[in-house]
């Protein structure tokens, strides 16, 4: 019998293709650097009002990032569950998932957020009154919690379609090969289909993340003090709309450009070797 020490993995070689990718990778970082540089120039040479705006708005940055990241992790999980449900052979499961996706995609996100923050608590209170449960009568919505709930509920519907497309893009032969080796459906998904599907859907998933990051600005209407809401507050107090919204836009641009670079980096890292 052959022993394993004869066959060691060959050392990783850098091919010309990889070098090329690294160059491309670098070039787009400059755009991000440029935007950061612009912010630095603005706050250095025109500290009034730009430095004031930045300081005022800066505590919204962490709120925006927190809301986006937490929602996105939840979206990844519920999107996968919904996506698998959409592919289920069981009609009722597929039906529920399809109705959910179609309904959610048909309602503007802003309206959904309004529902979760303003209407949902009042529904809970009425239920509490009807059943005389004191804890429900006194229910108050937590803005961040409702914002995350709203974003997750909406984006999971979109994400499920991304997962579904990704899974369907893997040839049927892969599932058949896995099953013919005796693997169960779940094992085949876990070890064969999903690892390949995730590579396929990485660009659209990254795109969803960046869209979610931008759409998180809508939570400013439901009392979450994110970048956008802090910008509105500053403008209301100081009446310098142009400078305020230029600064807010630049901050979002830093976040989105940075995210796009990270997505691209993961994509290059996980590309299939050929």
């Amino acid at each position: 019998m052959a022993t394993s020490q004869h066959f060691q993995p060959p050392p990783v070689k850098t091919t010309p293709k990889e070098i090329n990718e690294k160059i491309k990778f670098d070039r787009w970082w400059f755009l991000l650097m440029g935007v950061i540089l612009l912010i630095i120039i603005l706050i250095t040479f025109k500290p009034d009002p730009f430095r004031r705006i930045l300081f005022f708005v800066s505590d919204g940055i962490s709120v925006t990032i927190f809301t986006t990241l937490v929602s996105f992790v939840l979206v990844l999980i519920f999107g996968l569950i919904t996506g698998l449900a959409r592919l289920s052979k069981i009609t009722i499961i597929r039906g529920i998932a399809t109705v959910y996706v179609e309904v959610i995609r048909g309602i503007p996100l802003l309206v959904q957020l309004m529902f979760w923050y303003f209407a949902f608590p009042s529904v809970i209170q009425s239920v509490g009154q009807a059943l005389s449960i004191p804890s429900l009568i006194g229910y108050r919505a937590n803005p961040i919690f409702m914002a995350i709930l709203g974003l997750t509920f909406c984006y999971s519907a979109y994400m499920s379609e991304v997962y579904r497309a990704g899974i369907q893009s893997i040839s049927r032969g892969q599932m058949e090969a896995a099953r013919s080796l005796g693997m169960t459906f779940v094992q085949s998904m876990r070890y064969v289909i999903l690892p390949q599907a995730l590579r396929v859907i990485l660009p659209p998933v990254g795109n969803e993340f960046i869209t979610l990051l931008k759409d998180s600005s809508l939570v400013s209407v439901v009392a979450v003090a994110d970048i956008t809401r802090r910008g509105r507050e500053f403008m209301a107090a100081n009446f310098i709309p142009v400078n305020t919204w230029v600064m807010v836009a630049l901050l979002y641009l830093v976040l989105t450009l940075f995210s796009a670079r990270i997505v691209n980096w993961i994509e290059v890292k996980t590309r299939l070797e050929r």
């Binding site: 040839s171 058949e176 090969a177 080796l181 094992q187 064969v192 390949q196 299939l272």
Partner: peptide, 28 residues
């Protein structure tokens, strides 16, 4: 029952050795 397909259906994201060991470890 082992099966060999016209289109091979190897798992492209796994190295050859991992293609061979996956089912052995997971199923057997």
């Amino acid at each position: 029952v082992g099966m060999v397909f016209q289109q091979f259906n190897l798992f492209p994201h796994l190295r050859v050795i991992d293609n061979l060991t996956l089912a052995q470890t997971v199923v057997r």
